[in-house]
Write a protein that binds this DNA or RNA. Structure first.
Lengths: 211, 211
DNA sequence: GAGGAAAACCTAATGGCGTTAGGGTTGTCA
DNA sequence: TGACAACCCTAACGCCATTAGGTTTTCCTC
């Protein structure tokens, strides 16, 4: 029973898989998400294109793996931003900022995850799972803010969540489409994040009902 | 001087060009924007692929023509919605609704125009021109609302316009990415348009300064 | 109506792509 | 040491966008 090390071969294999995904992201950053070429990936790895099929059954499977990886990375980034902050209001801004900043700094992932523009690509349930976790995180986050008396209970309703995500998505998508190279602080759209949050807080003010 | 008719040949030519663009849109609706295939277009028209090069110098030129056509169509739809309405508040909602509705009903155009996801595609200045007209229309629209005493002057500032477009873009992009088949009225995100407009009106209320 | 130019369309070919089939080599474990 | 599987290769298929170059069709002018 020498299974202390996961087989050494599987470890090496996993390493190659990660390498393929890394190269794929790099190439997409330069050439565009939809312009990913398996031949180019193979060339960069010193392989012949068919060899990649030892690791992924198709190009779509690579997109799927990246979709999953992106969602995991974003989930973790969001969670990291929520840690180590006590003040609730400051936390909300910093968590939303972390979310936006991550998207601007990982445009390739963001495009893959939030705009479904790759023809024929549908994420697998497994790859989608961490995205559901992130939504759940957001819901819990809003509920904690409600608990703290800073938001009306409706803020964590389906409508509240849809509104929150739509407003953030709007900032991000406009920023990415119109000024992709601007920083989070300077971007004509991303810099409006505090404004948008303020509007959300005003709409779901704790004292006042909605509808 | 029999130039009463524009040459008959050029007329026929223009007709073929429109036909190519129509077929291209139809195919993109089925296969995806980035999956447009000139061979498929040619097949549908009963042509051989190289013959298309009589009409467009490259695939990107077709994308460019569609980009322009989409911007013209949206501009005209927006203008049509602004006509024949007197009440200023109702006008604002109906114009924004028309905008969102058009995007949901012309997803292919919207994807081409608002998310720049085609690798290597950059719209020509000529194709971009009608988009500038639309932005100018929006600005004039907001200024008229300000004039009517319904909005604070800051609403037509660069920040106000960025905020307005970002919020609408957020609704549309979330709707297209998550529920592309829902109607404008039923969509989980698109149906929030009145809410979003209300929030905008609240932020730029006429009595109160912003900054 | 005839001649000629240009427009419209074709075939052939190039180099790229994703993917499949099938054969050899190499590392690893019994 | 033998055997098996993982790994990587070459060859090939059918698709794509695009270019080169020739042929037919259309239409204006004389």
């Amino acid at each position: 029973m020498s299974t202390t090390v996961p087989d050494r071969r599987t470890r090496r294999r996993q390493q190659t898989i990660e390498e393929i995904l890394d190269v794929a992201i790099e190439l997409m950053e330069v050439e565009g998400v939809a312009a990913l070429s398996l031949s180019a990936v193979a060339r960069r790895l010193g392989m012949q294109p068919p060899s990649l099929y030892q690791y992924f059954p198709s190009k779509m499977a690579i997109y799927d793996a990246l979709y999953q990886r992106g969602n995991e990375l974003l989930r973790d980034a969001y969670r990291a931003a929520r840690a180590n902050i006590d003040d609730q209001l400051e936390l909300n801004l910093s968590a939303a900022s972390a979310f936006c900043r991550w998207c601007l700094e990982h445009q390739v992932y963001a495009q893959l995850m939030f705009w479904r523009t790759i023809p024929g690509f549908e994420p697998s349930p497994e790859a989608y799972a961490p995205a559901l976790e992130s939504i759940q995180d957001l819901r819990e986050h809003l509920e904690a803010t409600i608990e703290a008396g800073l938001l009306h209970p409706d803020a964590a309703s389906d409508e509240g969540i849809a509104l929150y995500t739509a407003m953030l998505a709007g900032l991000i998508s406009q920023q990415l489409a119109n000024e992709p190279d601007a920083s989070f602080e300077d971007g004509r759209f991303s810099r409006l994040l505090p404004v948008v949050l303020e509007m959300f807080y005003q709409r779901y003010a704790p004292t006042r009902g909605t509808t």
